[in-house]
Design a protein around this nucleic acid. Structure first.
Lengths: 148, 148
DNA sequence: CTACAACCTCAACCATAGTTAAGGTCAAGA
DNA sequence: TCTTGACCTTAACTATGGTTGAGGTTGTAG
């Protein structure tokens, strides 16, 4: 195996250096998330830039962004390497998505804690029942959780 | 169809009143998350208590708790209906799980925003690269995202 | 008493994110 | 040159959380 001071990496080197298994790199390649070229013997070779790309993919995943969405974002910024400005765009977008996700979890937690406080499970005041609940339209007061 | 003032609900009534599709109720039943009995003609019948149980399941799901975990929690508190005290236990546990989830997302967001600020993608200072990164052990300073 | 909506089971299928196995090829060191 | 680890492909399998369809049954209203 080549010593890793090279610009060109084998799939195994990418795996070791990025921390993702070879199978996942194959998978990402099938999904179009990463790309490289082949040797005459059909083996994968990558520019070491791929490590940055994989790092970005993993960060996005930690933020809960699906791979398909990550791909769209990365495809829109097709230059390689991704510039600092593009990274700023990306990270701002993902930060915003993260914030939405956080907000909705915080809201749920606060509602949950409100319910702990009241201990009643009464969904007359309790907002935990999901918002698109159809019960109101049925005109029945008997649908409160507390009476169910 | 019986008018819904009954204590006993058909699967369709449960679906309408809980807001989840019939197929999902079947699925939950297969998974042991909900239970009822059968008519002589093999049709499902449920006590309206099931609506409370389904509401709790959906709340847990919103909090990101897998069905298998929800089942364990509910099985431990096997009384039916679930009491206010048990609900408090449950919601406290889930609230704690939620808080952990929120904390890790907030941490990620802050790191992401730090990176937006510095705009450098330098992973020397940037904590975004995942913590179990193997690079340090390879003793190479060339592995920073910025130089990859 | 018949029609029709609602119900039943079972199996297959969907998406997401990969992992694993089988069977075969490549490449680098001794 | 040979051995061996790293590589290749394809297909099937994992888990989660369901949905869909086919083909058959039940139950209630008229």
């Amino acid at each position: 195996m080549a010593i890793t001071s090279e610009q060109v990496l084998t799939v195994g080197e990418v795996a070791r250096r990025s921390g993702v298994p070879v199978s996942t790199i194959h998978f990402y390649e099938r999904k179009g998330l990463v790309a490289g070229w082949r040797t005459s013997g059909n083996q994968r070779r990558y520019h070491r830039r791929i490590l940055r790309r994989i790092a970005i993919i993993r960060i996005a995943q930690r933020a809960g962004i699906p791979l398909a969405t990550v791909k769209k974002h990365l495809d829109k910024r097709a230059t390689e390497p991704i510039t600092a400005a593009q990274w700023r765009e990306l990270s701002e977008a993902w930060s915003a998505e993260l914030n939405e996700r956080i907000d909705s979890l915080v809201q749920l937690r606060d509602q949950l804690e409100g319910c702990i406080g009241c201990g009643c499970l009464s969904l007359a005041e309790c907002p935990l029942r999901n918002p698109e609940d159809e019960l109101a339209r049925q005109g029945s007061g008997a649908h409160l959780l507390v009476s169910e």
